[in-house]
Design a binder for these strands. Structure first.
Lengths: 191, 191
DNA sequence: ACCTGAACACCGTTCAAGT
DNA sequence: ACCTGAACACCGTTCAAGT
């Protein structure tokens, strides 16, 4: 029988931690609870992640990487901007559908003042990654607009979707998310 | 020399608590820190607010009441829907301008899973109050639309503005808020 | 009526010690 | 290399005790 390798345990901690943060936020993350979930002692968690900030930053970095990979794949197999935006809004919807969870970086933005600097950096990168992708998608529709205008529009879309998720979550009502997205489409904010 | 009355101390606690929650969230609220700020012991804070949930609910209730009063005044002296929306977006902007703070209920929505039931109730009421007001403002512009459509549009506006605040805060960049609001206007989401 | 000190089980973090 | 127990200063909450 194989013992769990170091990498396995790191992964187990990150998986458990990610679920907790998306449900209850960075502040609710507890090394003792985490340790119980993966079957080691809290002091051992510190072996893999010296501080809570290290763990938070690792979570956010991974989250951004995975998101970027998925979005790149979408764009590569794109059937057009509307199709892309359907898939994109579905990502944020699925977090809500999955036990009323939130975007990892959205929930962390709310807790900003309690985040160590290294976690804030990763939160910024996630936003920038999303805006970059949305800018590309928008450029498929409005080839005339300036890069500046596209980026501004992309940021507005990202903010509006994060907000729809936040408010729907607060009201424990995924219908609010769906109706907000529909309204964004009707007004033309989202292609 | 007058001693501080009971009401004064309750108010002092609520004022300090509100500032903390808007900056760092419900989870970061500490009875011990709060006690230090107002000059009593943490056990004494429990005299005024038996549990943290009682304090959180009181904060949110007060926040909604004050917001409702301000918005009612706006509507009463209204110079039209665009003017109303300018004032409305300015409220959320001023939280950011004031030390990168957030809407009390927006930040609490992110921490939903850690909120006692009585606090969640108040968060719901805040959202409903805002949507109610926005629906009235929208009815000034689109007299033809159904009550249902107006409410859907109002909820989308509320969500989009909360999202703009959340993302701008996360990036510590109030310009992101301003540009998002501008884009919402350009697309016609906001009158 | 309002405040306090002391206790309880929690928290992140550190560190010497184990294998 | 990986894990642990014990200690530290924190946390919300309770309660008997003070005025």
């Amino acid at each position: 029988m194989m013992a769990r390798t170091k990498t396995d345990m790191r992964e187990a901690v990150m998986t458990a931690a990610r679920a907790t943060v998306q449900s209850r936020g960075y502040n609710a993350l507890s090394f003792r609870e985490l340790a119980k979930e993966v079957g080691i002692k809290s002091a051992s968690v510190h072996y893999h992640f010296p501080t809570k900030g290290d763990l938070g930053a690792a979570l956010a970095r991974r989250y951004t990487e995975e998101g970027a990979a998925y979005l790149a794949e979408l764009l590569a197999t794109s059937e057009g901007p509307t199709w892309c935006m359907d898939r994109y809004t579905e990502i944020f919807r699925s977090a809500l559908a999955n036990d009323n969870r939130m975007c990892l970086c959205g929930i962390m933005s709310a807790e900003l003042d309690d985040l160590p600097a290294e976690v804030r950096t990763e939160v910024d990168k996630f936003a920038a990654m999303n805006v970059g992708w949305l800018t590309k998608v928008l450029s498929l529709t409005k080839s005339s607009a300036s890069e500046q205008d596209l980026k501004e529009h992309a940021m507005a879309i990202f903010a509006a979707i994060e907000g729809a998720q936040l408010v729907a979550r607060g009201c424990r009502n995924i219908g609010i998310y769906d109706r907000a997205i529909r309204a964004y489409r009707t007004t033309g904010l989202i292609p």
